[in-house]
Structure formats: structure tokens, C-alpha cells
Amino acid sequence: MKLVIAMLMDGMIYASWLFLIAAGLTLIYGVMRILNMAHGSFYAIGAYAGASLVGFYLAGGYPPWGAYLVLLGAAIFSGIIIGLLVERGLLRFMYGRDEVVMILVTYAILLILEDVIKLAWGVDAYFAYQPYTLLGRTKLVGLSYANYDIALIFISASICFLLWWGLNRTRQGKLLQAVIHDRDTAAFLGINVTRMFTVTFVIGAVLGTFAGALTAPGISVMPGIGIEVIILAFAVVVIGGLGSIGGALTGALIVGLARSASVHLYPEAELFVIYGVMAVVLAFRPQGLFAIATARKI
């Protein structure tokens, strides 16, 4: 029983982290049909901004609980800035191009931003462990878990609900779905498609920086973390189906639980289990488990 609970908890914690990273990536693709490879750099920028600002804040002797607000502010501010710069500064000139071209463009942005990060923060590691340890730990059937990791599960579930509610229960969400299904008709009916694209990309960027800022207290923030996570995020959204929020959640849960089972039962396969799961799913469902149906024009 202890082993089962350990696998479930570890899998849920890892899945919540994966969903935070993949949510912005799949949202941008679902609306704009852009597989944003630069999303990994958004994650890294959020992690660096959160870790460095928390360090400055705590060095000033301010109340430790305020570090959580600093993380949130760093994620939102950096996400809005980088999202607007990338979308308004470059991507808006590329709309209508082939999806492969957009992948190459966003991959180039990823490489550029990785160097920008090194110029801005250097190559030394940043540590902001205080928010992680401040919440303490909880014991469950003899197993100890950081409350920060448990909170991450609830935060991911809340974000998933907010995205679903925003897309399905609000007027703007309905308009956005119209853009997703047929952007030309949506523009003809008076919907400002350009503004929808900008808002969607900024929200996706904020989700990426938010994931990085929340992860920063639990890791060593160093160069290269963005490239590592974009591969994992890509695997998750491919399993769940590109453009589907529910698919991203399902893919994160599948990958998280599969990795946890591998770590506890057969650690040697940890590096391969994620790609093994992806290969099995794609063998039977090449479009992913919950891919959004694409309307065919006749």
C-alpha cells in the first residue's frame, strides 16, 4: 500500500508540473496553430525572474510570506513583456505561413532567448529555496511530502478549470472558439482576430513563465532548463492531442504516473518511459488522444 501511494503521489506531483508547462503550449497551438518552441525559454525566463527577485526580496529583510507574491508578480510581469515582444515584434509578420516555417521561427527565438538569458543572468545557478521550505512538510502513511509540492497539484487543477471555464463559459471564450474553427469567417463577422491572437499568445506566455516561477524554489535555476522542459511539454501535448487543454491534462497524468511507476519499480527505464508512452499512443492514435477536430473546407 505504501508503494502504491508513493507512486500515485509522486506521479500526481510530476503531472501537475508537466501540465503547468504544457498548458500554455497547447493553448497557443489550439488558437494560432503555432507549435511554439520558444515556450521553453518562457519557462526559463519565469524561473530566473522568480528566483532572482525572491533573492532580492528576502535579502532586504522583508516578511518571508511575501515571497509568494513576488513569484506571482515576476511570472505575470515577465510573461506579459516577453509575450508582447515576441508576438508583436515578430510572429505577427509570419501569420499565414506554413506550420513548419513557424516551428523553425520559434525554434530560432528559443536559441536567441537562451543567449539573452545568459547575458542577463549569467551562467551561475540561482537558488530560491525559501518559498519551498516555508510551507513545511506533511506525512502520509509514513511518507513525507513538501506542502509546496502538494499545493502545486491544486494550483494545476485550478488553472485547468479556469482555462476550461474561460473557453466554454465566457463570451470571449465563445468568440475564441469561433476563431479556432474558422478564422476567416470569424474575421468576416467582425471578430478582431489579430487581437485574439495577441491576447492568446500573451496568456500562453504567462502560463509558461508562471510554471517556471513556481518551479524555481524547488530546483537549481541554471542555463539549459528551458530546452529540457520543451521536450517534455512537447511529449505531453502530442500524447493528449495538440490544441486540447483536456488532452494536455490527460497526457500529463499519463506521463507522470508512468514515470513514477518506472522510478519506483524499474529506475533504469526512467529516461525512456516518457517516449515509450508517446510511441505507444501515437501508434494507435497518431493525432493524439483528444486532438481537436479540424474543419475541412470543400
Score class of each variant (00 low, 15 high):
Val31Glu: 02
Phe197Cys: 07
Gly61Asp: 11
Arg171Asp: 12
Arg92Ile: 08
Phe234Pro: 01
Ser260Cys: 10
Phe19Lys: 04
His39Gln: 08
Leu253Tyr: 01
Asp10Trp: 00
Ala120His: 03
Phe19Ser: 04
Gly55Cys: 05
Gln130Phe: 08
Gly83Thr: 12
Gln172Lys: 13
Ala248Arg: 10
Ala216Cys: 06
Phe197Arg: 05
Tyr145Asp: 10
Pro63Leu: 00
Leu175Ile: 09
Tyr68Asp: 09
Gly142Ile: 06
Leu207Arg: 11
Leu242Asp: 01
Thr250Pro: 05
Val116Leu: 15
Lys174Gln: 14
Ile225Asp: 07
Phe19Gln: 07
Thr170Gln: 05
Val179Cys: 04
Ala213Asp: 00
Val202Ser: 02
Ala186Thr: 09
Thr198Leu: 11
Pro63Phe: 00
Asp98Pro: 05
Ala211Gln: 06
Tyr43Lys: 03
Gly166Ala: 14
Gly243Ser: 05
Val116Met: 15
Phe19Pro: 08
Met37Arg: 01
Leu271Gly: 15
Cys160Val: 08
Ala233His: 00
Ala211Met: 06
Ile103Arg: 02
Phe161Ser: 06
Ile82Val: 15
Leu91Asn: 00
Val123Phe: 11
Ser262Gly: 15
Val221Glu: 03
Met1Ser: 14
Leu27Asn: 06
Lys2Ile: 12
Phe127Ser: 09
Thr133Ala: 13
Glu270Pro: 04
Trp121Ala: 07
Leu113Phe: 14
Ala22Asp: 08
Phe154His: 11
Val206Cys: 11
Leu85Ser: 10
Gly55Glu: 10
Gly173Gln: 09
Leu18Tyr: 09
Gly61Leu: 10
Thr194Glu: 13
Leu72Ala: 12
Gln287Leu: 12
Ala269Asp: 07
Tyr132Trp: 12
